[in-house]
Design a binder for these strands. Sequence first.
DNA 1: TAACTTCAGTGACTCTTATCACAGAGGGAT
DNA 2: ATCCCTCTGTGATAAGAGTCACTGAAGTTA
Lengths: 215, 215
Amino acid sequence: MQTIPKELVLKKFPTLEDSLLDELLAESTLKEVGEGEEVMRSGQYITSTILLLRGLLKVYREDDEGNEFMMYYLEAGNACAMSMMCTARNEKSQIMVKAVTDAEVLLVPSHLSELWLGKYKTWHNFVIASYRQRFEELLQTLDSIAFKGLDERLLFYLKSHVKVSGNEVKLSHQQIANELNSSREVISRLLKKLEQTGAITLHRNYIEVHDLTIV
Amino acid sequence: MQTIPKELVLKKFPTLEDSLLDELLAESTLKEVGEGEEVMRSGQYITSTILLLRGLLKVYREDDEGNEFMMYYLEAGNACAMSMMCTARNEKSQIMVKAVTDAEVLLVPSHLSELWLGKYKTWHNFVIASYRQRFEELLQTLDSIAFKGLDERLLFYLKSHVKVSGNEVKLSHQQIANELNSSREVISRLLKKLEQTGAITLHRNYIEVHDLTIV
DNA sequence: TAACTTCAGTGACTCTTATCACAGAGGGAT
DNA sequence: ATCCCTCTGTGATAAGAGTCACTGAAGTTA
């Protein structure tokens, strides 16, 4: 097991109280994951809560029939709310977490995470805040799927991608189609239209984003 | 203000500890709402958490552009997770809560609800459990919107309606269309198809459900 | 009973998205 | 250069869902 950089934890999770931090450092394990690696896969039992120290993760959900869609990005300083939820019920996960960039995660054993809810006020605030934030995001996603056309959703997707990882969106049309639950051809066509407005420029394997507000 | 029936509260919320129950009875207000009435409307500031003592409520969400869709039914013994969430941020609600049947709700002032999170372990368990449950339901809804056709969603909708209020679904096609974000004609046609399978019988203003599993 | 109002059924048409089929284009690897 | 493989572009076609226009049916009210 590697030593956990206390400085970093302190910096990324400033709201957590001191005694909790000590326990956190003592009891949790540090894991490094490389770009594209899976942090957690669908079907496993969830035994830890995930705290993200560095890097960027992507959280997917998979339903009974194998359909999958992205729920949200997880940035450093956040916890995976889904892992906390499932944890509680001792269920198999229906979620998949993948590293978008190289990343460091802190794995907190589930039983401790539960215990701390009662023991540390800052922890339970942290957990509740996480729930709320994800809930809100989920509602956003729901809104957009329920009410918007694919064109708007694509725009929304590109925006969120730019926000977390810059103006070179390194994705193939196929990958985008998968995440939006559509098909490549359709995405290609929509992207083409976007290119014609001047908002983006298409390349092989990546998209150069100029300005998505003009559309 | 009416007196709150302690027996009922005790029965519907058995997990709450005794001292909390006393405070709850002392500090919250009881409100009776008639069938069809709005308990909370979109755009108001949320100043209380809603606990449902008796009856059935329906929780909708409304987005910026005025689109609305049903999030879940709330049965006696449950709390409205949405009201707890919004509460925390002192935001205007984007939710609308309507009584499906006559109902009695307990309104807990927001600041108390927040305070109790730290003070009563059973309260924070209760709150966290509510979040989890709603989160799960929301994911269900998301799945079905993202991956299912309207026919399956209609089926799902009818099932959930039957579960909470019996085999006579007292809704017009128009109402169903609204809640599924579709249009009356389309719903009419789908219902007609369902009728032809023998699963339901259509009437004016209500639908008689025989067996939805056979479809 | 007659007039009115709300619900439900149906055909014709349009729009969006999905699917199929295929043609290039861009970049390795040999 | 040549071969190969993945990614992208495009037309044709089809399915699902929304819209429009209109008819009839069931209740309600006067």
